[in-house]
Amino acid sequence: MKAIEVKNLSKTFKTKVKETGLKGSLKAIIKPKYNTKKAVNNISFSIEKGEIIAFIGPNGAGKSTTIKMLTGILFPTKGEINIMGINPQHNRKKLAYKIGTVFGQKEQLWIHLTPYDNFKFFGAIYDVPEQIINKRIAEYKEIFELDEFINTPVRSLSLGQRMICEIVASLIHEPSILFLDEPTIGLDPVIKEKIRVFIKRLNKEKKTTIFLTSHDVGDIEKLCKRVIIVNNGKIVLDDSMENLKYHYLNKKIVEAKMNTKINLTDVEGISIIKDKDYNLKLEVDLTKKNISDAIKLLNPDNIIDINISNIPLETIISSIYKGTKS
């Protein structure tokens, strides 16, 4: 069953353009000029119920605009959206009961209230019966160890504690789809890990569909089985994480500490990243040279220490971003 279906979705923004300086400002008052920008340009995709997908792209690629259209915040200029049979633009309120949203850069909680009061308020907004709210608060209190700060006003919480509370508040009505827009931005590794473990658990136990945007490769790598990459408002890649790695991981990084210096400058399939003293860092193109041949070239008797690794996912993603830059 499809949780999300998007067909030919576009969103255009009109922005005012102005020449520099006071003269430009005066001109803009008399004769304003506008630019139109296609933030999202004719994208189509669908997501099955229970999937965890990463919707990623560089800044300004159209990720947040897409999420905002999917959640009913923005009206599309063109195209169709279907979220579990609901059109967000025609039935925003009905949709709201089915989805949860967390915006890493925007607060939804009342900062002067305690997390406990916030959870109660959110429960009331989603018409969740009092007993169930209490049960869910108790459940999340245990999972996230909220005891320590559940009765402290949100304004006094740390960023990590606040984000955990944002996530709990967005789940108080047990949504079928959770939209997470950069949920781990600015968080320390311990909190990040806690959130990732929880999202995985939520997906596994409650079959919640997760739609994640993040610049944190760790989030994408550890959580998602499918990646949609957008750039300049268009989808440039929609594939499984496995395929992404398979197609793009045709290079290995070899780091070796040598006994004697060795020259590999003109060897096909090998490019030298670093060659300092007896430390060598190479990139081996596996389509041209296999890894055992590369090691033979180094001469195993000459190697003191060696480390062979994949190209980091971050590098792959940024090379895709760069490759699709207009």
Binding site: I73, K93, A96, F103, K106, D127
Partner: peptide, 12 residues
């Protein structure tokens, strides 16, 4: 400042 987002995702 885009602060209506929080209200728009709620069923009220």
């Amino acid at each position: 400042n885009g602060k209506l987002d929080a209200y728009l995702v709620m069923p009220k």
